[in-house]
């Protein structure tokens, strides 16, 4: 005698399998992105296309001018958050000096969580590519900019609007592929 077969549909049992397959796909994609060099700590830039927050940051002693947001208007500029304690900033620094020599774009600095003497010594030793530098000893500006680490560099347009945030050092590659085309376009 043959066993009786239940008449219920079998298709719903495929659902869990499909869900697992989808999850494996999503996680697998992310893992392969990270292994290819995507930074898992990178956060989305919340401030993109919004005005650069208003600050009036004190200058380093004997090195005027300080950083005032309203002074940014009228030209495309880079605002670089750095510190003398920051190793990646040192790696980026020669390229900022090159940009300064070629007079490509105005570069301003925010000296983040740094002793003013340490900042000044660092600039003396490695060169000073900045037009304006403001001190940010208590991260007031850094937090208002959504900064999570140094260096971070903001591209600000003539109207004072943030157009891009570069997290990590500006390398010649980043410059050529991303920043230079963007700045050229903003200058039009």
């Amino acid at each position: 005698m043959s066993a009786s077969t239940p008449q219920t549909k079998r298709w719903p049992f495929i659902i869990p399998l499909l869900v697992i397959a989808a999850l494996v796909g999503i996680f697998g994609k992310r893992l392969s992105d990270v292994s290819k060099g995507a930074d898992p700590h990178l956060l989305p830039t919340a401030l993109l296309n919004t005005p650069f927050p208003e600050f009036d940051l004190v200058a380093l002693p004997g090195r005027e001018p300080g950083f005032v947001t309203s002074e940014l208007k009228g030209e495309v500029s880079l605002v670089n958050v750095w510190g003398s304690w920051c190793v990646a900033c040192l790696a980026e620094h020669p390229f900022l000096m090159t940009l300064k020599r070629e007079n490509t774009v105005a570069i301003h600095g925010i000296a983040w969580r740094d002793a003013p003497e340490a900042s000044l010594q660092w600039l003396e030793k490695h060169g000073d590519p900045y037009t304006r530098i403001g001190q940010d000893p208590r991260s007031v500006a850094a937090i208002s900019l959504g900064v999570t680490g140094a260096p971070e560099t903001f591209v600000v347009d003539q109207a004072g609007i943030i157009r891009y945030k570069q997290v990590g050092p500006i390398t010649p590659e980043v410059w050529q592929t991303t920043l230079a085309p963007l700045i050229a376009q903003l200058k039009k």
Binding site: H41, R113, R138, S139, V140, A142, I143, T148, G149
Partner: peptide, 21 residues
């Protein structure tokens, strides 16, 4: 900067500055 802690729990410098703010 630590991602799985609240700023209330974290001893990171940026967390301290965020608490003060």
């Amino acid at each position: 900067v630590c991602q799985n802690e609240t700023i209330d729990d974290s001893s990171a410098e940026l967390a301290r500055d965020m608490r003060i703010l």
